[in-house]
C-alpha cells in the first residue's frame, strides 16, 4: 500500500491523536511521532504504530503523529483511518485490521 495523497485522521483533543500522511517519491516509510507522554510511553506508541503500518502493508509514505495520550486502540484506529484515506482504499478487509 502506498500513500498517494495527503490525508489526515483524528483530532488534537486529549486522549486522541492526529495522524497526517503524505506521499513520498520513493518506496520508503517515514514515521515521526510526537507525544505528550513521549518519555513514558514513546516506545510503546512506536510499537503500536509500526505494527499497524506493517499490518496494512504500507511501503511508501510519510506518517506524522501528534499524540495526545491516546489509548492503543485509538492509535490503531487513527493510523488505519489516515493510511486508508491517503491510499484511497475503500474496500476493507476487516480480518486484516484487528
Amino acid at each position: 500500500m502506498k500513500i498517494i495523497k495527503e490525508a489526515l485522521a483524528g483530532t488534537l483533543e486529549s486522549s486522541d491523536l492526529l495522524v497526517k500522511v503524505t506521499p513520498l517519491p520513493e518506496d520508503r516509510v517515514d514515521v515521526v511521532i510526537q507525544s505528550e507522554v513521549m518519555h513514558q510511553f514513546g516506545e510503546q506508541i512506536r510499537q503500536v504504530v509500526l505494527a499497524t503500518l506493517q499490518q496494512l502493508g504500507l511501503i511508501s509514505g510519510q506518517v506524522v503523529i501528534e499524540d495526545k495520550g491516546a489509548l492503543d486502540c485509538a492509535i490503531r484506529a487513527r493510523v488505519q483511518a489516515a493510511i486508508l484515506r491517503g491510499a484511497a482504499v475503500d474496500q476493507l478487509d476487516w480480518s486484516k485490521l484487528s
Binding site: E6, A7, L8, T11, L12, E13, S14, L18, T22
Partner: peptide, 23 residues
C-alpha cells in the same frame, strides 16, 4: 479552555486538507 481552541484548530486543519493543504 483547551477544548474550544483545540476543536477550532482541528476544524481549520480539516478544512485546509479539503482545500489541498496538509502543510
Amino acid at each position: 479552555g483547551e477544548s474550544l481552541s483545540l476543536k477550532l484548530m482541528g476544524e481549520v486543519i480539516n478544512l485546509a486538507v479539503e482545500q489541498g493543504h496538509l502543510h
